[in-house]
Design a protein around this nucleic acid. Structure first.
Lengths: 200, 200
DNA sequence: GTCTATACTAGGATAGAC
DNA sequence: GTCTATCCTAGTATAGAC
């Protein structure tokens, strides 16, 4: 693999790096992630990552923005696509499916929230969060939208803490999972058990 | 302040350090926090922190354990102390009051969850989470307990992301806060607006 | 557009004095 | 029980070649 990477256009390369970075930041957190790990995940050299985004901080900011764009897009699609099911069910599923497809997306956003005190990252994270809430509010009542966000935060926590993947089948874990994910549990379990993700 | 610290018994010093560390880890995250910052917050030298706990990792593990002990204690008190209110109301309030008193407690635990992949920290964080859930399950039905945890995670996110303190009074922020905290909002706002916490 | 080499800094941990 | 001095590694960022 230390073969010289293919020469590809800047825009495409940016996207590649952002994708890799989303996973790495999601797993390791902002401070815990290194530009070198991102580089490895993207299959390029560490200095090149820095070259493209200027700083690690800027890279994270762009990851965060891309992240909320993705979530909004999923919500929009779910709202627009009126199959038989209730709006609640559609939007709920869209979130769980997003988790299943690309958990880095959600974990990275989560990492952003928890860094709220940071003068640069904080505002970006809050903006992302509120964009999601605002979108939900176009179709739900305040209480519903709040419940929805709460459930989402629980889901993120269950996933990031490894409550799902690290099968330490103790006490009530299964019950809590079943209760949280409902009929989508099978999907989530299947999706999350495979990818080994960025290893510490 | 760089005066030689008073000579105090080990047990007491440990507790002092744990308290300081809880705040620092809560604000900066595991990787972002430094033993030097913890030392400063505790008013002692950096090497001494390491001396007492062996490693930064071990310090964090102990912070995590102390953290869930505290939450459980608050729950237990709320459950036992039957004033007129419903169990829901009592336990709910106990959580919000805990946030108000010492938000580091909750933020540190949150930081632990998000590090779930770590072979050492992960298991400790999950155990803490499940201890809380199990306790709630002694008095609530699965669905109620789950809702409760979800709400708790949302609260943690709102606080850690600075949605409350960083008054960027945009759009629906106030609405979401009102909806999440209900009649406890005043309490939370008052409590969280003062302490400047660990500054980046 | 991408790499290798490297400068520089921060931070965890150790040694050893008091 | 607590400090100062210091070692050493890891990690961001820069310089400059290809």
């Amino acid at each position: 693999m230390p073969v010289k990477s293919e020469r590809i256009p800047a825009t495409e390369r940016r996207e590649q790096i952002l994708e890799a970075a989303t996973r790495v930041f999601g797993d390791l957190g902002y401070a815990g992630a290194t530009t070198d790990r991102v580089a490895k995940a993207a299959g390029i050299s560490q200095p090149y990552v820095v070259r493209v985004f200027g700083t690690k901080e800027q890279l994270f900011v762009e990851v965060l923005q891309r992240t909320s764009d993705r979530i909004l897009a999923a919500f929009d699609a779910a709202i627009a696509n009126d199959d038989g099911r209730s709006l609640q069910a559609r939007v709920g599923s869209s979130y769980v499916e997003l988790v299943e497809t690309d958990r880095g997306i959600l974990l990275a956003l989560m990492q952003g929230f928890i860094l709220g005190h940071d003068p640069v990252i904080g505002p970006v994270a809050r903006a992302g969060f509120m964009r999601c809430y605002d979108r939900l509010r176009t179709v739900f009542e305040p209480a519903e939208a709040m419940q929805f966000m709460a459930q989402g935060m629980l889901i993120n926590t269950l996933i990031s803490s490894g409550m799902i993947t690290e099968v330490q089948k103790e006490r009530n874990v299964d019950e809590l999972l079943a209760c949280t994910f409902g009929d989508k549990l099978g999907l989530v379990l299947e999706g999350l058990t495979r990818e080994p993700a960025t290893r510490a």
